[in-house]
Each structure stands twice: as C-alpha cells, then as structure tokens.
Design a protein around this nucleic acid. Structure first.
Lengths: 104, 104
DNA sequence: TCCTTACATGCCGTTGACGGTATATAGCTG
DNA sequence: CAGCTATATACCGTCAACGGCATGTAAGGA
C-alpha cells in the first residue's frame, strides 16, 4: 500500500533524491553525500520512496542501485491538470474581463 | 514567508478545499460541511492555504469568501515538468529497450 | 576466518502537524 | 444593548515524521 505521492514529495530531501535519480541510477552512498544527511537517514528516505513506488532497487553485491520510477508522479500531475491553465500569463486580467462580461 | 506548496498539498483536506474553490469562491461554512471537519479545523487549513498564497479572502460582513489563487501551484508544476515525459505510454518498454542496447 | 564495505534496521528524542473543544471577535438584527 | 451568526484564535492531546547514533546483515577481500 504505497503512501500518497503528495506526502512523499513534501520532504525536500526526497525531492532532491528523485532529481538526482533523474540523471542516472545512484548508490546509497552517492545519495547520502549529495543530500547531506546520515547514511541511515538517507536509507530511510529511500524506503519511503520505495514503498511509494517512486524508486526501485537493483542489488549488485553489497551495493544497491536506486533508480527512478516516475509512474506515481502521474497522480500528482493528474491532480494538477485542471489547475494548469489557470496561472498562464495574464489570467487575472482574463478573469476580470469575464467578470465584467457577466455583469453586462 | 509562504510555506512550501508541496507541504501544503500533502494534506488531503487542503487539496479538497482547492478543488472546491476551483469551481467558485466559497464561505468557510460551505467548506466546513464539504470536507467534514470542525469549523475551527477548516479555518486552520484555510490559514495555511492563505499563508502559502493559495487562497485569498474577501470579507463581506461577517462572512469570508475564500477564492483560489493558483499561482503557487506553478512551483509544483515546474518541479514536475522534467519528469512529465517519463510516464508517457510504454516508457518501461522503451527503457528496457535502451538497457538492452547498452548491453550489446 | 577476520575485517571491511555498503546498506538496512532498531531505538530514541524532539518537534510540529492535525484534530477537537472552548472561547474571543466582528457584524448583523431586533 | 441583547443575542445570533460567521469566523478566527487559544489551548490541549495525540501521534507520526524526521534526524541521529548504535547495531544488524550481507557480500567481498586478505
């Protein structure tokens, strides 16, 4: 039962991890250094990401290659979709214009 | 200093409020009933949304009309942007294909 | 086998989110 | 003014997230 992607993304360290994995798979050690947390701390964030289906692991001897699995982000995108047109340029002006037409 | 939109959206009640405001401005009472929390609970979520710049208030006598202000969502969208192509149809297959090519 | 590397897990403390009830505040109405 | 309506704030309890350190576990190397 993967947790909500929204909740998972609320933590900046986890967003950073995903951003790093966007480039290429990474080892826990690399990620630890990059995000500036302890190794256990990093591992715990990776667990959350794994349980949310946002990363997968590929073991190689004692190492673990973490790779991005972006599918769950589609849920975020879907929620966002109906809002997306709204912040396009000069929306406020358009809205005021439509309000004016409504008055007429 | 508005809080992170990601954090604000982590709570389902707040996402629900935004969804409701997408249709039209609403009074606190309407929102309270819709999300099934206590009135103070609703007010507190509205405060968070206000401080994040996601809603604005228009007082009218004792009533408060809350309206959507979608601009901060652009930050979410911007973060999401580089991922968006990735979950397009059959990405997994493409990825496997590229991996195979790498092996060859 | 012993040590080291790479990572996961257990445990703990602190902190803040979230929800509720009680109460304050502001504006209307009679 | 009294009292009602609509909303905000104060205060409190609970719980879980997040971070750290210590330790467990698995694999490789000497």
């Amino acid at each position: 039962m993967p947790s909500e992607p929204f909740v998972v993304l609320a933590d900046p360290a986890r967003r950073r991890i995903l951003d790093l994995l966007r480039e290429r798979p990474r080892l826990v050690g690399e990620l630890t250094e990059a995000i500036g947390l302890s190794q256990p701390g990093t591992s715990k964030h990776l667990r959350v990401l794994r349980e949310a289906g946002l990363v997968t692991v590929r073991p190689e001897a004692q190492r673990r290659w973490y790779e991005l699995r972006p599918q769950p982000l589609a849920e975020i995108d879907a929620w966002l979709a109906p809002y997306r047109w709204m912040w396009a340029e000069r929306f406020d002006a358009l809205e005021r214009h439509l309000d004016t037409m409504g008055d007429a």
